[in-house]
Amino acid sequence: MSESSRSTPTSSGFGRALVALYAVFALAAAARSIYQLSAKASEAPVAYTLSAVAGIVYVVATYALATDRRQLAVATIGFELAGVLGVGVLTLVDGELFPDATVWSDFGAGYGFVPLVLPFVGLWWVRHTRRRSGG
């Protein structure tokens, strides 16, 4: 293992706490959507489908960060960023579309705005660990 030639894995150091945080959101979003879709799918199909998509995105992002798959990490975190911004705007503009909340509603206000901050930190971290390699 020559550490000088390889870039820092995205799952080491601060990345480990970041992966833990992503795992929490993967769990929260996935569990929420499974519950929503199984218990009351017809009440708010758009919101619940979105919850499911968000859950999958968080699960894949967690997996990518934990296993140092950078391109996959950037793709899923980018999607996450677009999701939280897009859904945040949509919930403000057209509340009718989302009668029930998702993780991304109102820019993640229901989760202490962590869903809004998380993708920025995630993208920064992927860049940061690459730069440290010096190559």
Partner: peptide
């Protein structure tokens, strides 16, 4: 238990960081 497994595996200060995240959760 997940926090302990992940925290022990990381030898830096961020092993404790994992526990912070877990406890707040």
């Amino acid at each position: 238990p997940a926090a302990i497994l992940w925290g022990v595996a990381e030898k830096s200060r961020w092993g404790s960081g994992v526990v912070v995240v877990a406890m707040l959760t």
